[in-house]
């Protein structure tokens, strides 16, 4: 289920602007990897290249390779739609589909793709995904209510349930807690802890405590200045990054001296 991600010499351009430069890293299966760094350093841009979501932005393109269990995402003839079925994504702001009920939101990956599913299978999938997202007990009595009728934290967990309902191999999270209160954040961090038994998880966060709480490995990104490309400065075990980083900039950032 869970897969290894290898990134080789990756560069991301927005039209002619080089946004992210020369990234090399390997993400092991069944781990949580956190991306930290100041705003605008290309964490989210890089995260989006891991399931080709950057292509939604006009003019964005990529040089280099991203291998998922050895398959290059950017090889000739790769269908981004198939990539995204294996690499799910959770966004910064909760975005349940407003026209659908809670149940239909969980089933969105199946229903939107016109796949047939029997009612019992659908019920099982809804329950399994919502339990997986720690949301089942809160919404089991109102599955037919609109997805936008629950609180922000619940909506975000609904989005996670929606993402894991299509059983991806990798789950990308782009600042999943930045719009949530501490209680909801805690709920999602616990959830990440559980999900890591089945999925490879990559999370972008601005919250360094969160990175140190949830992740096994941490990558620190930085930019030299506005208009310069973002770079991967250091990538190591989370403990090492937060206690004995080998680069001065990392130490300055994690200790709060800048950023």
């Amino acid at each position: 289920m869970s897969k290894r991600i290898e990134v080789k010499d990756l560069k991301v351009y927005y039209s002619s602007f080089l946004a992210v430069e020369d990234i090399n890293l390997t993400i092991e299966p069944r781990t949580v990897t956190a991306f930290i760094g100041p705003s605008g350093c290309g964490k989210s841009t890089f995260l989006r290249t891991l399931n080709r979501m950057h292509e939604v932005i006009p003019g964005a393109r990529v040089e280099g390779e991203v291998l998922i269990d050895g398959d290059n995402l950017y090889a000739q003839g790769v269908d981004p739609v198939l990539v995204r079925r294996q690499v799910g994504m959770v966004f910064q702001r909760p975005n349940p589909f407003p026209t659908m009920s809670i149940r239909d939101n969980v089933l969105a990956g199946v229903k939107l793709n016109n796949r047939k599913i029997t009612k019992t299978d659908a019920d099982d999938l809804v329950e399994k995904s919502l339990r997986g997202a720690n949301l089942w007990n809160e919404v089991k009595d109102r599955l037919e209510k609109p997805g936008s009728s629950i609180s922000g934290g619940q909506q975000q967990r609904l989005c996670i349930a929606r993402a894991i309902a299509v059983s991806p191999d990798v789950l990308l999270m782009d600042e999943p807690c930045s719009a949530l209160d501490p209680i909801s954040t805690l709920a999602i961090e616990d959830l990440i802890e559980e999900l890591k038994n089945e999925y490879t998880i990559v999370i972008v966060t601005h919250n360094m405590q969160q990175a140190s709480r949830v992740s096994d490995r941490t990558a620190f990104f930085n930019i030299a200045g506005t208009g310069k490309p973002g770079k991967l400065i250091e990538y190591d075990d989370t403990n090492t990054i937060f206690t004995q980083p080998s680069v001065q900039a990392t130490e300055d950032y994690v200790s709060g001296r800048f950023g």
């Binding site: 979501m53 407003p98 939107l112």
Partner: peptide, 27 residues
Amino acid sequence: VPNELREASYALGVPKYLTILKVVLPT
């Protein structure tokens, strides 16, 4: 229609035409 909804749909591996047909138009 917010772009986030389109992105949410793409991220679920839904092709563009189905995203338009089943997410953008109903919304």
